[in-house]
Design a binder for these strands. Structure first.
Lengths: 202, 202
DNA sequence: AACAAAGTTGTACGCTCGTCCAATAACGTC
DNA sequence: GACGTTATTGGACGAGCGTACAACTTTGTT
């Protein structure tokens, strides 16, 4: 009474697209730039080579979609982590910084993916557009919670500049940590970010 | 009375090695990861394909040498720029920050090269060793001039931590600027670095 | 002038790549 | 149950890749 053997199953196009993007991200996380290959992604997704080009005009478009997807996911998770937290604006900002240093962020495999994104941003206009959009989102998240603190404590600071500094410091620490996890402890990184914020919102 | 035509000229091995490394860096700066190819580097250096493997056991070793060379050059240039500057330690620190934001540093082509380095660090033990060594040098440069200021002004701060923060903030700003030069002005980046230092050395 | 040493060339090999496209098989509809 | 639609397959194609290696050329020595 076994199911009759099928050579493949049709899948809803949207679901299929998503599964291809997921497979691509898994390949990039595992193999970095070497994982960026139609054949490896197809194998990872369990489909044939040709299907990739059926859903994406070129490999660059697939990566651009993957970039948008991953960046959006991460930003959303951060916002949610803070929004469902209670406490003063100051405490919520601390939750945000904690979320920025969560284990799934401070992961060399994630940097492997991002390094590929960066390399493509420098050559592909489509990727550059995604970068500008997603980076703007990240900065807005930082600024939003920083402004909450500034308003609650009645401080007058340029929250845009403050957010840019926080973003830069976190990016630099994240990069260095992922390249060399022994160079410092995650707690030290969080302390540095807090030191920056406290210095401007003292 | 023309010179008799020669198919090639022998070159001192050390000079040849250096010219191959230079050619590799030029390829990486122009084409990013795509430039990392024996054939393109050979063409750029004006030699045949086989010569690369005669001087370097593998392409990875060539890049590792190129990494060490470029990082050392940049660090040395910065130190020299500050050392030949006069003034108080505080003023010399300002020169250092200026040097960090010099046009030849804030150059997308330089990031193209570095993105390739980062990608390889995450996979190659040899590259990881070079990263640790060169990054340590950079941090030492920062710390050295920060300590001068702290001592001259009799401030008690953890200059190691301060240097790590400065390094991270600069890296993050450099990255963002090279990815999207319209996102902020170089002067704003310098101001942020100064704000970090001033906050801790007020 | 002859010779040895070694820097340099050029090619062949096997592999992987992205793209293209005709054939195939699954699914909804009648 | 037959049919049309289309998601999916799988192989062909040309190009570029890293490596290896034998042949060639230059250079310095005798």
């Amino acid at each position: 009474m076994t199911d009759k053997p099928r050579k493949f199953r049709r899948v809803d196009p949207d679901v299929r697209r998503e599964s291809l993007i997921d497979a691509a991200l898994r390949c990039l996380a595992r193999e970095g730039h070497d994982g960026l290959s139609v054949r490896r992604i197809a194998a990872e997704a369990g489909v044939s080579v040709g299907l990739i080009n059926h859903y994406f005009p070129s490999i660059d478009m697939l990566v651009a979609d993957a970039y948008e997807t991953l960046a959006t996911n991460i930003a959303d998770r951060m916002v949610k982590a803070v929004e469902q937290a209670e406490g003063t604006p100051r405490e919520r900002l601390a939750r945000l910084i904690e979320a920025c240093f969560a284990p799934e962020i401070m992961d060399p495999a994630l940097l492997k993916v991002w390094v590929v994104f960066w390399g493509m941003i420098l050559h592909s206009p489509e990727m550059r557009i995604v970068q500008q959009r997603t980076n703007g989102r990240f900065c807005n998240v930082y600024e939003r919670f920083l402004r909450d603190v500034a308003e609650a404590e009645d401080k007058r600071v340029d929250t845009t500049l403050l957010a840019r500094g926080l973003s830069a410091m976190h990016d630099g620490l994240w990069l260095e940590f992922c390249l060399n996890p022994d160079s410092f402890k995650v707690e030290d990184g969080m302390a540095l970010c807090h030191a920056w914020v406290d210095a401007k919102l003292a």
